[in-house]
Design a protein around this nucleic acid. Structure first.
Length: 550
RNA sequence: GAGGGCGUAGCUCAGUUGGCAGAGCAUCGGCCUUUUAAGCCGUUGGUCCUGGGUUCGAGUCCCAGCGCCCUCACCA
């Protein structure tokens, strides 16, 4: 779909009747009719509201049966004990039967459509019907006899998409559906824009992303996913706080964008007359906090990387980075596994089975995560050890990978190994969360080497569902080695990169002040949410993903 | 960046060999106090993504562009 249609407001200078879409014009007329009843079409502060789920839970079978038994002429002394509820919701269906209207209203708790759990006999016993309606929207009945003026006249002028507040006893209809039998109907807000089709809903993915506010109410599954993401974010914070990590905030606007190798966004600070970068990682600031004596820190960091966009990359994305003084990559591995498992438990809703669907796979968060070293994985996937330089070069040539640099000098074999390692990564079972650990030291210049084997860096990456989820290190805290590695990196970059790669002298100075040994970890939160919420594209876990402007 | 697919009413979608622009829902009018995507009768609504071209005639064929989706490439 292309055009974002005509229900956008007209520019002021052309707001003639003709420029307003006919469907909007009709809704404006209905709004005027509501105003003419003395009702504010945009409502006001409202107290004592409950959600649709709460209202539904108030239903009392006995009180409902007693009320039915009392009939139209209740005996003296009869008291209606059906609980009275008050609910706000958006109208998604309306059936006007003249003096009796039926509506379905929806709020954020209504929940997605589900397959009926079974069939129940119809009232005459001759046929069957679904036990529950397809969506958990709440039915409202508006009867001329029972709704106080001007609620009935208001209801006549309501359009699909309006938000209303309904008060009345919660009861069950003859057909067995829990319903508010309205005594009051009030206006919360008028909707001037035509809603999506009532049954097929909103499918156009472009409109879903650009106009998430429609997607959220029109597709309860979208609401469910983002509500769950929020619950998981809260859980992650509580998990880290329970382990005595403190949440900090460090600069998003940075003089130099460090801590990762990515192209940054550039901006300008007028007050100081200087160019700045949006951060690509919070790493170097968080480590400064360890130098200062904070024992365990984490940041929920929005990072900005000026690179490609695809189903696992958005230009701005969320990452948790954390540092633990006196930890190392082993403590980070334990923490990572526990964190993912706790999140999976939350998604599973208390079930023992922690296998969660992700596309065609069932990802097993319950079993111990697979641990495999870089070298083992390489040999298993390629069929020869990465130390076999001749086979490495031979295999790279066979796959058309470069074995000499642009200047014609032979590439370091370890760099060729790293090219071939993509093949190894693809051999990881997507349904088994897998730690790949002990990377070759030359590939990880900023990581502490193993004391027992300096050719191996204490680093791991976690792969889940075919994606890189997390990256952790035993951090380097020797200022001289850090400085040398920085200079080495700077020497090896091209001119285009040199504009935003700088030597962070202050960070090296911080290490001279002294940083305790530490473990560091970064988790790509959006990708983590993808596998936990079973969403195959990052745009389905980001409320407002980057879109080309229309 | 390369290849492929898609773009038609507010929404969801058809549209045959190039021959009057279609359906369902929504809207609007009428009937209806237990409906369940309510029903019945009637009604309105179009920049066929944009701009060129071929043709007597283009939603359809050709060229260019725009947007979205998919695959691949790039991507600490």
């Amino acid at each position: 779909m292309t055009h974002i249609p005509a229900n956008t407001p007209p520019a002021p200078e052309e707001s003639s009747e003709q420029s307003v879409h006919r469907l909007e014009a009709q809704r404006r007329a209905n709004r005027d009719a509501i105003a003419a009843l003395g009702i504010d079409p945009y409502g006001g502060r409202t107290v004592d509201l409950m959600t649709i789920v709460e209202a539904r839970s108030k239903f009392d079978e006995e009180a409902n049966a007693a009320h039915q038994a009392a009939g139209k002429a209740p005996p003296p002394g009869y008291v209606d004990r059906r609980p009275v509820v008050k609910v706000a919701g958006r109208i998604v269906l309306k059936r006007d039967g003249g003096k009796l209207m039926w509506m379905q209203i929806r709020d954020w708790t209504s929940g997605p459509k589900e397959a009926p759990e079974g069939l129940a006999p119809a009232s005459d016993g001759s046929a069957t019907r679904p036990l529950e309606p397809p969506a958990h929207d709440l039915q409202v009945a508006v009867s001329l006899a029972d709704v106080a003026a001007p609620g009935f006249d208001l209801s006549k002028s309501l359009d699909l998409g309006d938000v209303i507040i309904v008060t009345g006893p919660i009861m069950k209809t003859k057909a067995g559906e829990v319903t508010i039998w309205a005594s009051r109907v009030e206006m919360a807000c008028k909707s001037l824009a035509p809603p999506p089709e009532k049954w097929k809903g909103l499918h156009d993915v472009e409109i879903r992303y650009r106009r998430r506010y429609i997607d959220l109410y029109a597709n309860p599954e979208t609401m469910r996913a983002f509500m769950l993401r929020s619950r998981l974010a809260s859980l992650i914070r509580r998990f880290l706080e329970a382990r005595e990590f403190v949440e900090v905030e460090t600069p998003t606007l940075q003089v130099q964008a460090g801590g990762a190798a990515a192209k940054p966004f550039q901006t300008h600070l007028n007050a100081l007359g200087i160019d700045l970068f949006m951060r690509i990682a919070p790493e170097l600031y968080l480590k400064r906090l360890l130098v200062g004596g904070m024992p365990r820190v984490f940041e929920w960091s929005r990072n900005f990387r000026n690179e490609g966009m695809d189903k696992s990359h958005n230009p701005e994305f969320s990452m948790i980075e954390l540092y633990e003084a006196f930890g190392d990559y082993n403590t980070m591995m334990e923490l990572t596994e526990s964190l993912f498992r706790e999140c999976a438990k939350e998604v599973a809703g208390g079930a023992d089975d922690l296998r969660l669907p992700f596309g065609e796979w069932m990802i097993d968060f319950g079993s111990t995560f697979v641990r495999v070293t870089y070298g083992e994985l390489f040999e298993r996937a390629l069929g020869f050890p990465m130390t076999d330089a001749a086979r490495v070069v031979q295999e790279a040539k066979r796959r058309g990978l470069p074995v000499v640099s642009k200047t014609g000098t032979p590439l370091d074999p370890i760099l060729i190994v790293n090219e071939l390692f993509d093949v190894a990564e693809e051999s990881i079972d997507p349904s088994r969360p897998t730690f790949v650990l002990d990377y070759p030291a030359p590939l990880c210049p900023l990581t502490r080497p193993k004391k027992s084997n300096p050719s191996v860096a204490e680093r791991f990456e976690l792969f889940v569902g075919g994606m890189e989820m997390a990256n952790a290190y035993t951090e380097l805290n020797d200022p001289d080695i850090q400085e040398a590695k920085f200079r080495e990196q700077l020497a090896g970059i091209g001119e285009d990169e040199s504009t935003f790669r700088n030597f962070d002298e202050d960070f090296v100075y911080a290490l001279k002040v002294g940083m305790p040994p530490a473990g560091g970890l970064g988790i790509g939160i959006d990708r983590m949410m993808m596998v936990l919420l079973n969403q195959r594209t990052i745009r389905d876990v980001i409320l407002f993903p980057m879109m080309r402007p229309v």
